[in-house]
């Protein structure tokens, strides 16, 4: 009974780390541009499938496949900003939603053409069986996921707190006009935000693929659950995203374990709706959601 309980906690935290990374992807673009990127989930899908491509047909070692997949997805994010978002600088919120949705469909369709409709698997990052801790089996990959997620969060926090580029990006978020007057190239900061969030999404995709495989149409669901974490944690809040991701992951894992595995995908969405209804500024938010 209690071993089950701890088992669910482990798997909930693992998937929660993924949601947190997706949520951070939303947060980066949102804090610089106030755009909600509906293609965020597709970055995760692309990361996983690119890693499959580099590690499978091209026989790259795993760490290199990881780096290449993240890099390729970063290029996709760059292209998205250069060729699409850049053309719609003054578009309304509604047109931007439609535009990012269109990009997400195109990425999904492209992935279907390239990789087909079947799920693809990827080897785990380290060999060896699960680690046993008093009856609870922990897959080494779960540790990889939580570790890499923690590393990314630390690196991002340092980036935004200490580096000049991070500070410049935050300045764009606060007031783009003032940032431009202060000599910050806002255009490049927006580009950087898209590349960065594509890469983080891709990293999440690569590390989750050994656990749950990856196929072309996983993006939308991962994306919206990540958005749930972003809203629950407060849009633009990195630490909030982390906590909210863990909450969503745990809720989902407990639902699958104790209630119904068929409805586990609905749990995160119900929490998203509840968060929007009850506390749209999120657990750690600043209250700017209200119009």
């Amino acid at each position: 009974m209690t071993t089950d309980f701890f088992q669910y906690i482990v798997s909930g935290l693992t998937i929660g780390a993924i949601y947190a990374m997706v949520a951070i992807g939303y947060n980066i673009i949102y804090s610089v541009t106030e755009i909600i990127n509906f293609a965020q989930g597709e970055f995760v899908m692309l990361g996983g499938l690119f890693a499959v491509f580099f590690a499978g047909p091209l026989h790259f070692p795993l760490y290199l496949a990881f780096v290449c997949a993240v890099g390729m997805t970063g290029l996709v994010g760059m292209a998205m900003d250069r060729f699409v978002i850049g053309r719609a600088r003054n578009a309304s919120v509604m047109s931007l939603i439609i535009i990012t949705l269109a990009v997400s469909i195109i990425l999904k369709g492209g992935a279907m053409l390239w990789w087909g409709k079947d799920p693809h698997s990827l080897a785990a990052f380290s060999t060896g069986g699960p680690i046993r801790l008093g009856g609870v089996a922990i897959q080494p990959q779960a540790l990889w996921i939580i570790g890499i997620c923690a590393l990314i969060i630390i690196a991002l926090t340092l980036f935004f707190r200490k580096s000049i580029y991070g500070q410049a990006m935050l300045a764009c978020a606060n007031n783009p006009d003032a940032a431009r007057l202060a000599g910050i190239p806002v255009k490049y900061m927006v580009l950087l935000s898209f590349v960065l969030s594509a890469m983080i999404g891709a990293a999440a995709g690569v590390i989750i693929t050994p656990v749950s495989m990856m196929e072309y149409d996983r993006g939308a669901l991962l994306g919206i659950k990540g958005f749930g974490a972003a809203v629950l944690g407060g849009l633009g809040q990195f630490f909030g995203a982390l906590v909210a991701g863990a909450i969503l992951g745990l809720a989902e894992s407990f639902c699958a374990g104790y209630l119904s595995s068929g409805y586990k995908d609905a749990v995160a969405l119900v929490l998203l709706l509840l968060a929007l209804f009850l506390k749209p500024e999120g657990l750690f938010g600043s209250g700017e959601a209200r119009s």
Partner: peptide, 13 residues
């Protein structure tokens, strides 16, 4: 009651 993108996401969910 919220800004533009929230209805889109709420309805998507």
């Amino acid at each position: 009651r919220l800004k533009g993108h929230y209805l889109a996401m709420a309805t998507m969910g």
